[in-house]
Design a binder for these strands. Sequence first.
DNA 1: TTTTCTACCTAACGATAGGTAGAATACTTG
DNA 2: CAAGTATTCTACCTATCGTTAGGTAGAAAA
Lengths: 183, 183
Amino acid sequence: MDIAARQFRARGYAAVSLRDIATEAGMRTPSLYYHFPSKDDLVIAVMNRGIVVVREAVTAALAALPSGTDPFARLGTAMRAHLRALHGLSDYTSANVRIFGQLPEDLRRANLPERRAYQAIWADLLSPTCAGNPEVLAVRVPFVIGALNATLEWFDPARGDLDALADQLGQVLLTGLKEQGGK
Amino acid sequence: MDIAARQFRARGYAAVSLRDIATEAGMRTPSLYYHFPSKDDLVIAVMNRGIVVVREAVTAALAALPSGTDPFARLGTAMRAHLRALHGLSDYTSANVRIFGQLPEDLRRANLPERRAYQAIWADLLSPTCAGNPEVLAVRVPFVIGALNATLEWFDPARGDLDALADQLGQVLLTGLKEQGGK
DNA sequence: TTTTCTACCTAACGATAGGTAGAATACTTG
DNA sequence: CAAGTATTCTACCTATCGTTAGGTAGAAAA
């Protein structure tokens, strides 16, 4: 599964064949079928773990905060934890974000329960910013998650500081572009 | 190309075969080869047009503004035009955003010149928010474009008002989440 | 000692992919 | 109308895909 996640992340869902995965794992293709009944089951397992990993990372980071922490500080912490999971922790979360849009609909549906559970965390985090307006919340939750996930397409943690990125994005999302972005 | 863009947008790059495109176009697969020398050439043409379309839409919207318009009003106008191109105008831009991450590296590289030209527009728009700090600008440009593009994964223009979305996202991006999102 | 399980193997299947060769048809122009 | 060009056709190729069938060596359990 580690190998599958790495390859899915790097090259996409359809472009990675079971042969590719088996080769890197040092075995023959059909041997994979001892561990997974089909490619679909393998990819579902990778996808679900991707959400579990990031959810655990975010909840752990929030739990480490002193109780009564300012809602905006909690948001910043969650953003940082999410970005870390995306760019550093493992390939599962990044693989999930990368290939979710490439999956046929039934595979996507299989990942929806995990995704909804994760979105619920962000709904809690963001509801203080929405004045109890559910329509605003319903937009802000996917928007923030989507904006963070989109960094996967352009930010390279090998060439830039992940913490600096988290700081900058936290500032933009919390205080807006009108706030000058200086040192 | 219209049909190819629609299918790429809906089902991804690898999942769409030349047979699918030809069938919907009312012809046989080899007939496509009269118009495009390969699938790669077809997809490159679609990808490039996708950026051209959104760039023209944004520059036209900006040109229609009275001269001397406030930089933040210009930003809001550009965001709205970008979202319109993504969700309404044509399938080329949405296809581009959807499948760019799925393409093999050489095809992605073929689209980079257009993408860079489009990013230059946003660099101009955003530089007033960065106090002349090039590192901040280098983060904010892809961040804003990526955040807008990410709406493609969760917003359905058939079930929500695109203008309302543009208003909300403009507010969040310009003034931040700390600004309560009310009516 | 007999049986079952684990973790792989080789060989091959049907389906589908992008692509090619060359004949047939449609359209335009002298 | 004839010639030539533009477009689409039929028929086929090779490569690769996910998957299945059937088997094997060795460890674990009965």
